[in-house]
Amino acid sequence: MEEIRLIDIKEEILSDNRGLADQLREKLSKENVFFINIMGSPGAGKTSLILKTIEALTHRYRIAVIEADIDSMVDSEKIAALGIHAVQIHTGGFCHVDASMVEKAVESLPFGDLELLILENVGNLVCPAETDTGAFKNVAILSVPEGDDKPLKYPLIFTVCDALVVNKLDYMDLTDFDLDRMRKRTRALNERIQVFPLSCKTSHGTENWIRWLEQEISNFQNKPLLEPG
């Protein structure tokens, strides 16, 4: 009779991806490219936020965008129309972007002539939260019509983000969205999260988001140390 052995493992699930993501951060640190990952539901305003960000920062930083979609080019065409380098990833049914997909996408980027890399993740609040993309900072975008109970329904994504953009403030009067309640729910899950209520449509509040991003880029450029994603 063979003996049953118990093997201690205590290893993080998705540790292979984490390892790849760490390598990617190391590479981007060396190239001095600040990389952010933008996550949110379909229709929350990820592309609109990226377009607003490009508009505000294109005179200051050399920017490139990785657009991930299950199967379309619509968003990357909007970015490319602004003269910004856009790489399209087709995840082919995959519901999120992982570090290996980003690694492949960055191969075509003009390193040496790039300071800010923005990833638009697949529209989804579940899977992207579990998967490290190699980004230095993670941003979630939630829009007012989606409701203030999203932190209760999809808590994980709020725990992994450094910033939360609350978009479509211009819809506020049409809903019972309570910004204060949403903030409390979010902060309970993640104390360090920065919340930016804004409207990409009217530009109201976008300056606070831009100021935060500029500060993060500046911190990164002055001290390009590896940080966990």
Binding site: R5, A188, L189
Partner: peptide, 19 residues
Amino acid sequence: SEVSLVSGKEYHVINMEVL
């Protein structure tokens, strides 16, 4: 409502029994 998350994010393989 001044609360913070202590646990609930775990995502680990702990051990396995093998022959």
